[in-house]
Design a binder for these strands. Structure first.
Lengths: 232, 232
DNA sequence: GCCTAGCATTGACTTTTATCAATTTATAGG
DNA sequence: CCTATAAATTGATAAAAGTCAATGCTAGGC
C-alpha cells in the first residue's frame, strides 16, 4: 500500500480519530489488492474475516434469495463496508462484487476488534458509523414501505441531483438495470417509471437526466429529510 | 423506580457490562412513567432527548409519509429503543406509541452519551447492540425486496412459531391489522394471504395459528438464516 | 467502421397488491 | 348480557408491478 493510500484511509471518518500507533498497527496487518470488474469479493453467509475498504473503483452490495437477487447499496471510494459483520464476528448478510476495476484494502476483522477494545476514540467513531448505517437502513425501509416505485424514483432523482451539484441536468452514476434493482423494481418498470415522470418535467436521454420543472417534481416526490437526507 | 426495576434494567444486555457507578449515575437522571394505551411517546423528526426503555407493556415504532403510515417494529420488555438517535444526537426517524398500558423508563440522551465516553465496556455493548440493530434492518430490507407478501407472511409465521416454542399451534402476538402493516401489506391482503397459505397446512382461527404441515410450509417459505434469524 | 453482445425500451399480458364497500365477527363498556 | 365500536373478512374492481417476447440502441472489440 502506498503512503498516499495510507493517508487517504487515515482521512476516512472511521479512522480519523484513533491513536497513530493503533492506526499503524491496523495497517500493518492490512493488504491491498486490485480486482477486475465483476469479481465477487465476498459471498453472503461466509464468516467476516476482513473489513473491506474501497480505495478506487466501486463495489455493489447485493443479496440473493430463492433465485432472485437485489442490489442493496453501492460503495464508492473511500469508504468501508461490512463493518457490522466485522464487529459482531457474524456472517456477511450481503455479497459484494466489483462494478469496475477496483482497488480494495482488506483489514483482518480480528485486528479491528482488537484495536476497538483498546482505542476508545476508535470505538467512539465505530459507534457513530454504525448508528449512521442503521439510520440509513431504516430510511431505506421507509422508502420501500411508504412509497410506490414511481415515488422512489422521483425522490432518488432529487437526491442524486443534489449530490451531483444541484443543476437541472446531471448524469446517472450507474446502469439503469442496477438502479432498478436498488430501487426495488424491474428494469422494465424503471423504464416506464421514467416515462411516468415526464409529466413532471423529467427528461431522460441515455444516462443524462434533465429536470425541467423542479417545483413540479418536488411537489410530486414530496422529499422528506427523515427518508431522503442521508447525512443525518 | 423500584429496586427490582433497577435490577431488571441492569440485566438488559446494553447495561449489563458497565461499571456500577456509571449505571447508578445513569439511573439517577432517569425517570419512569406509566402511560395508557395508544399514547404517542415520541414523534419522528423531534430531537432525541431520551433513551427509552420499555419496562412493561409494549410499544409500536411506526413512521408516516404523505398520509400513509407503516409499523416498523414492536418493542417488548425489557428493551430499549431509539438508541441510534440518542447516540448520534439526531432526530428520531420513527414515532413510538404505546400499544397497551405501559411502563417506560426515560434516560436523558446526554447522560447516555456522557457515560458512553467514560465507560468503555458500555461503549462496547452499545456497538454490539447497534451492529445488531443494523443487521436486523438489513434483514428486514431483504425480506421486503426479495419476497412477495405471501412469502413474507409464511416466513413470519415460521419465525413466530419458533419464538413461541416450536409447537404446531401458537398465538399471534398482535392484531392482524398491525401484522399487516409490519409485513408491508394491507389488512385485506393479509386476510387473503392467510387463505393463500391454507394449501400449505396453515389454519387460522382468530389469533390462533396451527401449522398442520410443517414440511410443506417450510418448503414454500424457504426460510433463510440470513433473513429470518434475528439473533445473528 | 462494422459487428456483436448486452442493455434498454416497448407492447401484450399476468400476477400481485391496493382500494372501496359491504358484511360478519370479535371485543370492551355499561 | 347487551350494545356500540372496532377489527376482520369477503367480493368486486382498479392500480401497481412483474413477466415474456420482440425490437431498438449503444459501446467495446476487431
Amino acid at each position: 500500500m502506498s503512503a498516499s493510500e495510507h493517508e487517504d484511509i487515515r482521512r476516512i471518518e472511521l479512522f480519523s480519530q484513533m491513536a497513530d500507533d493503533n492506526f499503524k498497527s491496523l495497517m500493518r496487518g492490512a493488504y491491498v489488492q486490485n480486482f477486475p470488474a465483476q469479481i465477487e469479493l465476498i459471498t453472503e453467509g461466509e464468516p467476516s474475516d476482513f473489513l473491506h475498504i474501497v480505495i478506487s473503483g466501486s463495489v455493489d452490495l447485493f443479496s440473493a434469495w430463492n433465485g432472485r437477487d437485489t442490489s442493496m447499496a453501492t460503495v464508492r471510494p473511500i469508504s468501508t463496508f461490512i463493518l457490522a459483520a466485522t464487529i459482531k464476528d457474524a456472517p456477511y448478510l450481503m455479497s459484494a462484487r466489483t462494478l469496475e476495476k477496483s482497488r480494495i484494502a482488506l483489514i483482518p476483522s480480528q485486528d479491528v476488534r482488537a484495536i476497538f477494545d483498546i482505542d476508545s476514540n476508535f470505538a467512539r467513531t465505530i459507534v457513530t458509523e454504525l448508528a449512521q448505517c442503521y439510520r440509513s437502513a431504516i430510511k431505506a425501509q421507509k422508502d420501500l414501505k411508504l412509497r410506490t416505485s414511481l415515488e422512489r424514483l422521483a425522490n432518488y432523482l432529487l437526491r442524486h441531483q443534489r449530490h451531483a451539484g444541484g443543476g437541472a441536468a446531471f448524469e446517472l452514476d450507474f446502469e439503469k438495470r442496477r438502479l432498478a434493482s436498488v430501487l426495488g423494481m424491474t428494469p422494465e418498470n424503471l423504464s416506464r417509471a421514467f416515462k411516468g415522470l415526464q409529466p413532471y418535467g423529467v427528461i431522460v436521454r441515455g444516462t443524462r437526466i434533465t429536470i425541467n420543472n423542479q417545483a413540479d417534481l418536488e411537489h410530486f416526490a414530496k422529499p422528506n429529510p427523515l427518508i431522503d437526507n442521508f447525512s443525518t
